[in-house]
Design a protein around this nucleic acid. Structure first.
Lengths: 253, 253
DNA sequence: TAATAAATGTCGTTT
DNA sequence: AAACGACGTTTATTA
């Protein structure tokens, strides 16, 4: 145990309690493996009966309770909770109360296998590529990704229900709304496009506006609905967009 | 360090590598805090530059990389990945490859603050209450939760686009489709209900079917759209449904 | 604060 | 494997 971190192997509850409080007070990242019960009350309710889990409490008040399976925590709290602790004869209680919403997670701890408290030195930068935004950028630079002769008038155009991803004209001067999806398009995406097209028709008093859904894939039903609604589909993947962006900028992504 | 678990405080890379392999081979839950870089390639791409993070690898192959903020991991893999490790002069590489999809996460580790490997004894049961399913059950037992005189014909009725949550008749014998949402209803939910009502009208050759959206809250736009489409809203919370279920079953939830 | 859309969403279920 | 909907979704963005 150094000055700047705490690591306890199989600590008695009382000791764990002392250092847990120290870690929380010191705004450290706290983790422990505990034999515990967990209850949650808020939008729904849940109860997890006794067993060993990995628990993480972050300095921002987020809480994660992980079993030994799966990506998702079995119980959790997002950031901005107040963490409180209480030691009784039998067990150690850790309680997380969300400030904004009425949501509470309580962990009743009977035994700890390990407790660690660390201050993460992390000023690293995180960058992500291949999202919808990158598709947008690529289309602005290379409108032909949509089709030959396509021209972008603007992106993020506001309409009643929200924002149109890309707004432009085709080679024959017809106004065109493009809805982008980085993953598989479903009927949802089709309806979203329809909404934007209709809204824009109304706003501009125009009867004919093309609607193009661009995404790497579309479901069968989505495509069916698209055709019914006289909308169009353009296969376009984030990967392809990235290639174009790299070419232009000479970027190594 | 006991037979059934491993806990290393500030281990040299070489030692960490040895015990990391041991933990992974032994299907243990592995966690460590590492100074590392992370890259991801798959549906999208990302790069996280050097810094300290908490990393968890579960026996089922799921991987979590957490910074000191937020509920969500900065990088991850869902279950069913193959984890491989390699030690070079400078650093330790941990690689997770997803079997089904082409997705890879690579962690380049320069230093470890702590490494733990544990076998979680966890046969606890997890139960959750207050989801859409509970609302359905409550309505089956107490149809008046929708309105006086309402009768359930069946739940999960299949129609073209999917399943109707609750299908019934009102006090005047009119067919009624109920769409349930455990949280706030938005325009999405309204459109879903509309889809079901239309689909059922067509299937049954009936011109009049009532559509009721039941949820604890609805957005302004959602309500507006609902009215435009001649559909109806019934405020109903999972909490209220749970109260009825408890009453009936004498359950303590 | 409310609402809307994106996400490497994940996860279960059904076709 | 594909599709569809729920989720205590979370998170970012904008009115």
């Amino acid at each position: 145990m150094e000055g700047n971190h705490i690591l306890l192997d199989n600590p008695p509850l009382k000791e764990a309690y002392r250092f847990l409080r120290k870690g929380l007070a010191g705004k450290m990242l706290v983790f422990f493996i505990a034999d515990c019960e967990v209850s949650y009350r808020g939008r729904a309710r849940s109860y997890l009966s006794r067993g060993e889990r990995l628990i993480v409490i972050k300095p921002d008040g987020s809480l994660l309770i992980h079993r030994d399976k799966g990506y998702e925590p079995v119980n959790w709290q997002p950031p901005d909770t107040v963490i409180s602790t209480r030691l009784t004869d039998n067990h150690l209680l850790v309680k997380s109360v969300r400030k904004s919403v009425n949501e509470v997670v309580e962990i009743h701890i009977f035994d700890l296998k390990v407790l660690g408290c660390y201050r993460l030195k992390d000023i690293g930068t995180f960058t992500m590529y291949g999202r919808e935004e990158d598709m947008k950028k690529a289309i602005e630079m290379f409108p032909s990704l949509i089709e030959e002769g396509f021209k972008v008038l603007r992106t993020e155009r506001k309409v009643r229900p929200g924002f149109i991803d890309v707004f432009g004209v085709d080679s024959q001067g017809r106004l065109t709304v493009v809805e982008l999806k980085s993953g598989t398009s479903s009927m949802d995406a089709v309806l979203q496009l329809k909404k934007y097209v209709d809204s824009l028709k109304k706003e501009l008093g125009v009867t004919e506006i093309r609607g193009i859904l661009a995404s790497p894939r579309i479901t069968k039903r989505g495509l069916q609905l698209l055709k019914t609604l006289k909308l169009e589909y353009k296969p376009l993947s984030p990967a392809k967009c990235l290639k174009y962006l790299e070419r232009k900028k000479g970027l190594k992504l």
